[in-house]
């Protein structure tokens, strides 16, 4: 019965996500440095997947669906922006200037920096060798 098997895989995937979230949330307060519990859960799951060697099917499917719905999941938090009343015009100006100019500046610097770093690290005559050899690994 393939339907029951699929459902079990989905449930297993969801279960893994919840277990790692709880694991992260429980361990985060014990760590010597502050980190959000869910982020710690993500790092632990990443470590687990690297040790396991592959992504279990159910987990891959559930994660993909969840990430597709990401905009829906954070919609309630985003709606709050229209209810903000305690920011002055000066704050709004600083905010927009920082977001627009700041993003363009950091994009420029990180782009140029990476360009220089990656160029130096490989022979100039074949800059795309490694990216094209992706399938060989």
């Amino acid at each position: 019965m393939p339907n029951i098997k699929t459902a079990a895989q989905w449930l297993g995937g969801a279960f893994i996500l919840v277990v790692f979230e709880l694991l992260g949330r429980s361990l985060a307060p014990i760590l010597p440095f502050p980190v959000p519990g869910s982020v710690l859960g993500m790092l632990l799951l990443l470590l687990g997947l690297m040790l396991y060697g592959e992504v279990p099917r159910g987990l891959a499917v559930v994660s993909e669906q969840l990430l597709k719905l990401l905009v829906l999941i954070f919609l309630p938090a985003a709606v709050g922006i229209y209810f903000l009343r305690d920011l002055s015009p000066r704050d709004w100006f600083a905010l927009f200037a920082a977001m627009i100019v700041g993003t363009l500046v950091s994009l420029t610097i990180s782009g140029l920096l990476l360009n220089a770093l990656l160029k130096r690290s490989r022979p100039p005559e074949s800059p795309h060798t490694l990216s094209e050899g992706k399938g060989d690994e």
Binding site: L43, L45, L49, V55, A60, L66, L114, L118, S121, S131
Partner: peptide, 30 residues
């Protein structure tokens, strides 16, 4: 929906794992 935020952060580990091979190719400059 707020309740699903946590699991979706954890779920980010999956695409990260799938793209990790790239890091090994581009290495330290990246």
């Amino acid at each position: 929906l707020y309740f699903l935020l946590g699991p979706s952060v954890v779920a980010l580990a999956v695409p990260l794992k799938q793209n990790l091979a790239i890091v090994r190719q581009a290495g330290w400059p990246l």
